[in-house]
Computed example of a mutant assay.
Amino acid sequence: MGGSNLRILYKVLILLLLVIALTYALTNIRHNDDFNKNQIPIAPVPDKRRYELKLYFGNPQNDALTVERRVIVSSEQREEKLIVEELIKGPRNKILNTFIPKQTRIISINTIEGICYVNFSKEILNNPWRKINEDMMIWSVVNSLTEVEYIHAVQILVEGNKDVFEKIYSLKEPLYRNEKVLMDKVITPIDTFTRFIEYLKTDNYQKAYKMLDKSSKENLDFVKFKLIIGNYAKQMKNYHIYMYQTQKYSSGVVLVINFRKTTISISDEEDEMIEKWKLIYENGLWKIVLPI
């Protein structure tokens, strides 16, 4: 009889413990629900994406557009906004020209049914329009944005207005891509200088001489050029261009070039030298200014 009472007591204690545990669990659940309801939701951090952009800037004479490729890693989810932001920053290649004043803000940018609507702030009007080819700025924006697969046309606005460029260009309707304003290929100063060095390395002095600017040719005829440049050409056969920088000035550029000696074996010590070469833009081509 005593054992039966003891078993009943155990059962009562176990049941009581279960009731207490269940009550505690329910209380915590309600507390957590109340806590979560009072928390400010945290917006998810967007993943960064890698964009390969094709941006169009003015050539050295501002009469055509040329492409500058740029890789950007950004958390911006709208590629079109990133493109316009990079256009405002301007070209990295210092021989190219930008059209949009850096103070310009993007008020809004949205793409609806293949048309990208870009609303600029009034600062975009601060450019000296009469000193450049005015419509290049417009096509710079249109052609850069239409590189995006889902954008077929661009509607440009300034402070919400379409008629601000009426004296220059009609923007009442969306504009489609214009291939006529693009250059096939831009020959950069480093392209020109690299070709000049290759001509010297292969003893093609006639072609190298043709790459000189007008003033250099007036000061030095071909015979003297060949005599003077001969030793330099022999030396350069053992070197290659390792790195370079482009410095822009009023009438041209200066290339700061790091040459590295072409090694024959691993045991050979690396030999480097730095030179500065000036180039000017003549008749649509970059020309070498021969140091005197």
Results as ranks from 00 to 15, higher is better:
M1T: 05
L6R: 15
V12M: 12
L16M: 13
L16D: 01
L22M: 11
Y24D: 12
L26N: 02
T27C: 09
N28A: 11
I29S: 04
R30H: 13
H31A: 13
D34N: 15
N36R: 10
K37H: 01
N38M: 13
Q39E: 06
I40T: 02
P41E: 14
V45Y: 14
D47C: 12
D47V: 15
L55P: 01
Y56N: 05
G58L: 04
G58A: 07
N59E: 02
N59F: 01
N59T: 13
Q61S: 15
S74M: 08
S75V: 11
E79T: 04
L82N: 05
I83D: 02
K89N: 14
G90A: 08
P91F: 07
T98H: 11
P101W: 15
K102F: 09
K102P: 00
R105I: 07
S108K: 10
S108V: 03
I109K: 03
T111L: 09
E113M: 05
E113G: 04
G114I: 06
I115G: 01
C116P: 00
N119Q: 03
N119R: 01
F120Y: 05
F120D: 03
E123V: 07
L125I: 06
N126A: 05
N126G: 00
N127Q: 15
K131N: 09
E134V: 11
M137N: 07
I138S: 03
W139F: 09
N143Q: 00
E147G: 02
H152C: 11
A153N: 04
V154H: 01
Q155T: 09
V158M: 06
G160I: 00
N161V: 13
V164T: 11
V164W: 03
E166F: 09
E166N: 10
Y169G: 00
K172C: 05
E173W: 09
E173R: 08
P174W: 07
L175R: 05
K180Y: 10
T188V: 10
P189E: 13
F196L: 02
T202K: 15
D203C: 12
Y205A: 06
Y209S: 14
K210N: 11
S215E: 15
S215T: 11
E218P: 00
N219T: 13
N219C: 08
F222W: 09
L227V: 08
I228V: 11
G230R: 14
Y232F: 07
A233C: 07
K234Q: 04
Q235I: 13
Q235L: 09
M236R: 03
K237T: 05
K237D: 06
N238E: 12
Y239D: 06
H240W: 12
H240A: 13
Q247N: 14
G252C: 08
V253N: 02
V256N: 10
N258K: 14
F259K: 04
S267Y: 03
S267Q: 11
E269L: 03
N283C: 03
N283E: 14
K287C: 04
P291N: 03
I292G: 15
